[in-house]
């Protein structure tokens, strides 16, 4: 029970010596990262820098080649000799939101949000649906409950995906470029939901190209390049006074756009 108490000073996420190779190409070259409860960490950096891979290692959608990943007391070693059970235990505490939403197209919105509550947490359909409706109301989409995802806009789909992840009461939420597939306008409604979550004290790791979000909402920014964290620290400091040349180069490139 200790590991879930709010006063726990151990980091919620601890990544140590994480390496990941695809074939002979090493995309993560020894990452150390710890995230405290309630922290909001933004990961930015050029494409191919390994930021999405790092995020996907946290909930083990990618297995890693060396090092360990610990989330809420569940530790996973390299190349996942881990059993499905361990993985499920880890994932139970971690919500994830994908760039391409990945809603289930054959289920209506309500079922999308309810199904894992029933199958993973063992809630009854009535309990699950009630929780789903709460969350859909919270993201402003209660009226879409009976629609199919294909009938919803991209921004709506992403808000539904956030509700779906929240429905399992995760201790941490991972966001993998949640607004990259959206028009700027639709992206804003997703960012608004994320801001609210942040204000509510949710622990979040956000891979993003939204520099405003990184600077204003997150507590800490990590800049990655070539599989390494090249700079990290309090958001404003990193964004405004980057120490390394590579980070300066990246930040001025994204600001010039």
């Amino acid at each position: 029970m200790n590991e879930t108490s709010a006063t726990d000073i151990r980091p919620l996420v601890l990544v140590e010596g994480l390496r990941k190779s695809f074939g002979s190409h090493e995309v993560l070259k020894g990452i150390d990262l710890s995230v405290q409860r309630g922290e909001i960490v933004a990961i930015i950096g050029p494409s191919g820098s390994g930021k999405s891979t790092l995020l996907r290692c946290v909930n083990q959608l990618e297995t890693h080649t060396a090092g360990t990943v610990t989330v809420a007391g569940v530790t996973i070693g390299p190349d996942s000799a881990s059993h499905d059970r361990e993985l499920q235990k880890l994932r139970r505490n971690v919500g994830m939101v994908f760039q391409s939403f990945n809603l289930f197209p054959h289920l209506n919105v309500l079922r999308n949000v309810s199904i894992a509550q029933q199958r993973v947490l063992g809630r009854s359909q009535a309990e699950a649906d009630e929780r789903s409706m709460q969350l859909l109301t919270r993201v402003g989409l209660a009226d879409k409950a009976k629609q199919y995802p294909a009938r919803c806009s991209g921004g709506q789909q992403q808000r539904i995906a956030i509700a779906r992840a929240l429905a399992l009461d995760p201790q941490i939420m991972l966001f993998d470029e949640p607004t990259s597939a959206l028009d700027p306008e639709l992206g804003l409604e997703v960012l608004a939901v994320m801001r609210e979550l942040a204000e509510g004290g949710m622990t979040m790791i956000v891979v993003t190209h939204e520099m405003h979000f990184a600077e204003d909402v997150s507590n800490r920014v990590l800049i990655m390049a070539d599989g390494e964290i090249i700079e990290q620290g309090p958001s404003r400091e990193v964004m405004q006074k980057p120490q390394t040349e590579r980070a300066r180069q990246f930040l001025s490139a994204v600001r010039d756009r």
């Binding site: 909930n59 959608l61 994908f98 391409s100 990945n102 894992a116 199958r119």
Partner: peptide, 16 residues
């Protein structure tokens, strides 16, 4: 693939 990943990320068992 994203469908399977979403199910995995939600902690669903292989069978589910």
């Amino acid at each position: 693939a994203g469908q399977k990943e979403a199910a995995d990320a939600l902690g669903m068992s292989r069978l589910d």
